[in-house]
Design a protein around this nucleic acid. Structure first.
Lengths: 202, 202
DNA sequence: GATAATAGAGAACAAATAGAGAACATTCAA
DNA sequence: TTGAATGTTCTCTATTTGTTCTCTATTATC
């Protein structure tokens, strides 16, 4: 069981290590967790080592290694450090304030569920074949929302919603090879709205 | 059987524990359930312990552990029900076997971090401006991987990797308006490989 | 009305935690 | 080789926290 200070220390190390590929000095860690004493930092590190979360190479400068356990152990709500923005042709730009993504915040909620997408109808909206979309269950949607629609109570489809002034409902695919189809409103039942999307490359 | 106060206490502990990964102090619990006495909280904890719902490490600060029994109705890892596949023009098809997505499985692992994407250079690969990509920190990559590359030690970019037989390294954007650029291998340093991608529509 | 059971306040004390900083040992680069 | 930076081991201090008490108030039950 780690104390909050030890957790803070571990977290600080992890973040730096992922960015740079090597560890802090004790003084840097001390500054990072806002204390003055290297001795105190060393005590925390020893404790983390005895919990098998890090390995200390004795007397080596920056001689701290993260053990694989360290990444499993910490967050009960999965979080990923958010290191910054990346754009073509520029160094990675740090983001102030928000330093991690809370996956639970990102997606979890009672009325959400996931669907796996088959087909390329929303390709140009960045939703590819095999992606997972997170749907919020609701019966209404705004113009421009990507929705799960049930047509005639049978066919389900993922499309962008557009209502015409005359009441007709357009279901717009994001794929130039597919056609937009217009329906009478009573034929289209909204089952949910896309609120998130995930893809795994593994 | 728990008294209402004990239930309240347990619920409060569970919530905090899942978020932070460690327990409250007695004072925090007291504030959380709106009483003033740490002694009373301690009595409740003792009672919860004798019901086998928590374990108290004696004299440890924040030394409260949730027993598995306490978590039966609370998922430790956020999951979303995976209802099925959706394709244009067909009813939602149920998926056999796996019925929920485990977000931790999906993304978390050692040496991962997130970057927010700026720009449209990977648009046609379904990675849009504003998306978050999950990067696995590594110095090598296979042909076809989408990588974070550091060019000349300065510029960072997200591109698809292609190595030519003559040793040159191509960084291929997935955007027909942008050009593939070839570099000498020593100019390109691989910082990580994209292993996941997230988008929020909220 | 008597008796439990439940809730809560708060005092008192020991122990854990947090931190400072001195002193020494070891690395590592100039 | 030497000196500065770094890692390591100490001791000391202060604060917070866990723990155990005793005391009081409320509520329901017989």
């Amino acid at each position: 069981m780690l104390t909050p200070s030890e957790k803070k220390t571990l977290k600080f190390i992890q973040q730096y290590f992922m960015e740079k590929g090597y560890a802090h000095t004790l003084r840097e860690i001390a500054q990072g967790i806002k204390i003055n004493s290297r001795g105190v930092v060393h005590r925390y590190l020893k404790s983390l080592e005895s919990s098998n979360l890090i390995t200390i190479l004795p007397n080596r400068k920056r001689g701290i290694h993260l053990n694989p356990e360290a990444n499993e152990n910490i967050p009960l709500v999965p979080t990923i450090p958010l290191l910054g923005r990346i754009a073509a042709g520029q160094p990675i730009e740090a983001i102030e304030g928000r330093d991690e993504i809370n996956l639970a915040d990102f997606i979890m909620n009672a009325d959400r569920f996931a669907l796996q997408v088959t087909g390329d109808s929303m390709m140009e909206a960045g939703i590819l074949d095999g992606d997972t979309v997170i749907i919020k269950h609701q019966n209404t949607a705004d113009n421009g929302d990507i929705i799960v629609a049930l047509i005639d109570g049978i066919e389900a489809t993922l499309k962008r919603l557009k209502r015409l002034p005359d009441g007709m409902v357009l279901l717009v695919p994001e794929n130039k090879f597919m056609e937009t189809i217009a329906y009478e409103p009573e034929r289209v039942q909204i089952q949910g709205v896309v609120v998130g999307q995930l893809r795994s490359y593994q």
